[in-house]
Design a protein around this nucleic acid. Structure first.
Lengths: 193, 193
DNA sequence: TACTTGACTTGACATGATGTCAAGTATTAC
DNA sequence: GTAATACTTGACATCATGTCAAGTCAAGTA
């Protein structure tokens, strides 16, 4: 068994456990057991809990093809189309990602490295939002009285995982409802009709 | 020293520590020390960590006069005014409340009682949102194509502590900017101009 | 064939937080 | 003067994290 095999087995096990049990009380020992590996093997592959989580996010991104999905947004013909595609990408990605995001959020207060990784992702999402707002502005559909930075912040916040969690997981919106209503919200908030 | 004194001293100490240090790694021993009380006194007054947190939210609500603030919303002359007052109440209350909310959110996954208390508050806020939406509908300003339940969900999500945290704490919006922009967002999303 | 190396296992250990228990002390209330 | 109340002190069990040392086992190399 090569190290690589162990490593991905551990990642898969962690992913399954955290996704299924909502992050709470998933212990390193349980992850090791689920990966059919000794607890110490986990520490040989990952420095600590935070390190495992950071690796896990990357792993999930890759597994789900995040990069390609983001490309789809950039490839949209217009700013408005980009907006629509962004919401639709979210709808597809979030169900598989939110549990790991919760887990990171829980640890980041006590783990510098996790906090950095968290802020990294946060910033790159914000960059994406700025790009879309810039396109809206170029297309001349951005509300005149709204500063671009504020528009990007709003887009970023409204399309956050947290909002999705609130509306879909808590309030029971279907994916289709979320997609349509959030798009409309963004339309009426960010654009002039 | 009566029990009541110890109890409020503990609550004040916990409030200060959690508010200052952002909830992470605030230990029962630290709280006890800050309250100049033995660690066991904490367990005599509160069953466990979760119980302390639950008591803490109530304590903060009372201290900050949450009930009166909510009354102000109900007293607003129109639905649109209620909406505005709601946002303004939020701006004033959130800074003193968010740290405790974070702490509860962190524990609720592993603590049934905390989860119940969390859902309680969540539901009562949702009720408040429904009431405002009902007033908007009665005033005839609610968007026709938007179901009241969806409107309430959106209002609830947009005015959540999380959104406030994102925009004010993370993105650095001032209180005034938050108040104005969120009100406008709600206006353009929920009402027909 | 013997030797080394890499990847892992086993089991022990230190640390730190939570929550519990038993026994003692001081203040108040009757 | 006694009993109850509200603590304090100190010990203890439990559990998760992370570390360490020694051993196994298969593959590649001399």
């Amino acid at each position: 068994m090569s190290r690589k095999n162990s490593r991905t087995r551990i990642l898969d096990a962690a992913l399954t456990l955290i996704t299924k049990r909502g992050e709470a009380g998933v212990t390193m020992a349980e992850i090791a057991k689920a990966a059919r590996v000794s607890r110490q093997a986990v520490y040989l592959n990952f420095a600590d809990r935070g390190d495992l989580l950071i690796a896990l996010v990357r792993y999930v991104d890759e597994k789900r093809g995040l990069a390609q999905e983001i490309q789809k947004i950039a490839n949209a013909p217009t700013g408005l189309e980009a907006l629509r595609v962004m919401v639709s990408v979210q709808v597809r990605m979030n169900p598989g990602v939110w549990a790991i995001a919760r887990a990171m959020d829980a640890v980041r207060r006590t783990d510098q490295a996790v906090e950095r990784s968290w802020l990294d992702r946060l910033n790159s999402r914000l960059e994406g939002c700025r790009a879309i707002v810039a396109r809206l502005a170029r297309d001349g559909v951005l509300r005149k009285e709204l500063p671009a930075s504020a528009a990007a912040d709003i887009l970023w916040s409204v399309t956050s995982l947290r909002t999705w969690e609130d509306l879909v997981l808590q309030r029971g919106w279907t994916a289709a409802q979320y997609e349509e209503r959030i798009y409309k919200l963004l339309l009426s908030t960010l654009t002039s009709k």
